[in-house]
Amino acid sequence: MGINLAKYDHLVALAGNPNTGKSSIFNALTGLRQHVGNWPGKTVTRAEGGFSFGGHNYKLVDLPGTYSLLSASHDEEISRNFILFGRPDCTIVVMDATALERNLNLALQVLEITDKVVICVNLIDEARRKGLEVDARSLSRDLGVPAVATSARSREGFHDLLATVAGVIGGQISTKPLRPKVDPAVERALDELAPMIEELAPGVPNARWLAFRLLDGDHRVRQALLSGELAELVARQAAPAEAANPLIALQGAQ
């Protein structure tokens, strides 16, 4: 409504569990500059909107709320394929501050796919009411990506969130996400498979995730590998010039 979403500087994806106030964040950021439709070929609602910050126009795509990215459900398929193949410049993972443990499961999976992640610890006001104190810095230290506490209702933390997103996109904040440990047998399999994928598509940032998806039997990734789409993806992702020296460097607990 009233905005040309075709013209934007940066593409940002919004991921998160259901009922984390993700759509409140979406609405608060975009206001009426949004458009609701369907994901192509699917009957899953796709909301996208625009906002401006610091002189740049951003397009925000609200991914379906999911608990995980590993299953074969339409919602999860859409989310993981958008983060992987849609190449967002940054992915915001919205978490419910009152149920961090459950939400971290999804965040860890997103971190496997992409480095450009900002954690948004939402519903911080509700957590306070429930007597919970959430330390965003501790999260950020552990995960190796910035974490910002927000409350969609009072718009608390919004400026920080946007500044952080801009920083991650612009390269002022460098991220080095935590690579979650997996079962030793799976780890060995990934160690064998990931280098092969890297050889096939040099520079691919998430060979480990792709290897895991192949083991899991992801038809989409299989096809991307066969058709050479994966190699293309890397070429396109490498295109924007790296920003100068990062001002803030984050590194996940390895």
Partner: peptide
């Protein structure tokens, strides 16, 4: 096994990040 180990790590990280002050409301 993968999901289980993801959740185990989530639990650790959440434990470090959250402190409970009683359980009002």
């Amino acid at each position: 096994r993968t999901v289980a180990s993801l959740y185990e790590q989530s639990q650790d990280i959440a434990c470090r990040a959250v402190r409970a002050r009683g359980d009002a409301r």
